[in-house]
Design a protein around this nucleic acid. Structure first.
Lengths: 196, 196
DNA sequence: ACAAAAAATGAACGGTGTTCAATTTTTTTC
DNA sequence: GAAAAAAATTGAACACCGTTCATTTTTTGT
């Protein structure tokens, strides 16, 4: 069978496994059984399972990115709120996928694809930065950059907790409100600090 | 040998492994080899490896808590800043341990100990809430509680990223500054929102 | 000193990622 | 179209993982 078709097929099968059963079920043997291809073929196509997961994570990030792209509002403030809402919504809708994104560490993976992966993240950060530029025109570019980075890190960090049950266990704050509250408090803080 | 002594010994050996080599080296067999006790003994003492990790994580949280307790400043604002600094410092100093805390999910572990574990977390959150009460006396208790929870979740989420190399890879913001900046922006935001 | 109870042991089970000699399929060459 | 060469596919085998449990060793009670 054609190489591309196999990859597509495996990736698709993998995605079904993740969606329906969770990451812990995404093993070489189970993927092999579910797809009909042998274990060796998976390794021929992707080198190792980490790479396979990296590709899956890229797809997840890409999906989130395209949700962001759909958001087109004139008000920068509203747009940022919609980003945050879309983000939280996406994470909750795609728990299993986001859990994977978060629990995967780039260290050992192939450099080549890692770059593509990181670029996808920074593109999203740039979307936020664009809105920041509109919202805080007098904020120094340097400071704005740092503000955006940190906001993103916070949202990213919070999102990781949304995918696990740890939040439900100890905090009674409604999950969807966390990102919204964080964003608004943060933006208000920046507005004040902008003037200093 | 006495039961208690074995537990102590195993926990201590485990801690050395984590500190020097990382969580991925904390396996039943390696712990057995390093401690001199058999694999079976580990299971007699702790039931399963998850429980062992839970105990290790409790020790980590306890260590952080005692760092918090040392902080005694009159100014609530300064105190919160010191909490944040101590937190970031602790996480960076104990990367391997904190990574474990974060990457462990309570779901399947023994209920009994989980409660002790969660109580340790909520005690820390209460420390922050106490400072919030001083800093924002007019803020409604309900709102204050939510603010504190969310701040904690943010710091917690950010801390998880501090333990991995992912932050270094894509963001150039200095790690120690992230918590400080987040806290100050957040506190400023709350101050404004307090009046509304 | 001996029997009974408790604790410690490590081989064995089913799972994981990964490798690679052997096989099958596809492509090239004549 | 058949034979040879190249490429792709396979799955048994390796070293690891958490976990169990029949067996052995140690401790305890009398």
């Amino acid at each position: 069978m054609a190489r591309d078709y196999i990859q597509e097929n495996l990736v698709h099968t993998g995605r079904t496994i993740i969606r329906e059963k969770g990451v812990e079920f995404l093993t070489a043997r189970k993927l092999s059984e579910a797809s009909g291809y042998s274990v060796g073929t998976i390794y021929n196509q992707f080198g190792n399972m980490d790479n396979f997961i990296l590709i899956q994570n890229y797809l997840t990030l890409d999906s989130l990115y395209h949700r962001f792209l759909k958001i087109k509002t004139d008000s920068a403030y509203e747009r940022l709120n919609m980003y945050a809402a879309a983000f939280a919504e996406f994470v909750l809708e795609n728990r299993n996928f986001w859990f994977m994104v978060f629990n995967f560490h780039l260290n050992q993976s192939e450099r080549t694809f890692s770059i593509t992966y990181l670029r996808r993240i920074s593109t999203m950060v740039m979307l936020i930065e664009k809105s920041f530029k509109e919202l805080y025109p007098t904020l120094k570019p340097e400071k704005r950059h740092v503000s955006v980075q940190i906001l993103w890190i916070c949202l990213f960090g919070v999102s990781s907790l949304l995918t696990t049950s740890s939040l439900e266990t100890y905090s009674k704050v409604e999950q969807t409100k966390i990102c919204k509250f964080l964003l608004n408090t943060y933006l208000t803080g920046i507005k004040v600090l902008e003037k200093i």
